[in-house]
Amino acid sequence: MIVGSQKPIEEIIATTCDYKRLLVIGCGACVTVCFAGGERETEALASGLRLAMKHKKIKAEIEVEMNVRQCEWEFIEPLADKVEAADAVLSTACGVGVQFLAERFPEKRILPALNTSFMGGPTEQGVWLENCGGCGNCILASTGGICPIARCAKTMLNGPCGGSQNGKCEVSKDIDCAWQLIYDRLKSQGLLQLMTDYTPPKDWTPARDGGQRKIVREDLKIPND
């Protein structure tokens, strides 16, 4: 899932305090699961903003709406009237949801409440880790199901650098060395040969370096005759 966390409240206040009627829209997808922009967090954020505005003696109406998924037009459409009536919209969705709202309502100020961080998952209560770098050409088959693109600080493709120590990355003792993990996994599977084989330079064209990426499925497209 997409994992994010709420921006510092001061930053959110600074971007929203000029608007009299603010609509805060939560998202029921990934950000609900990672406790960043679901109903509970969105209501709490709105309460915090109401208090802050009161404290600043700013008269503002702050309303909350929930949305199944902000990254699909059909779920955004029912909110059109509410959005039109507001001066600005604060979205607690990921960056995708914010952009979908902004595209549907181009004349409206659409503001992000979250910092969208990565694609990953929870490893324990309250902890999320990044797993996928979205490089567009998955190499997990040769790395024991552990991604060095997302998880190695230097995106090494031919084994660990000289900074791997006691299973940790040289960048921080809080970060596991992805290649130590890969080594251990491949060793346990009898596949260490994969780390002896040379991996040539990666073709980054399916990655983000070519501008906005697009997937087209002709089999799913609806003919517009």
Binding site: A153, N158, V171, S172
Partner: peptide
């Protein structure tokens, strides 16, 4: 491959690592 930028005087920079030392 190179030392990570975290250790230097521009830790806010974006690293490249298009290649690794082997490549």
């Amino acid at each position: 491959t190179g030392d990570h930028q975290k250790f230097g005087n521009h830790p806010q920079s974006k690293n490249v690592f298009d290649l690794d030392s082997m490549q």
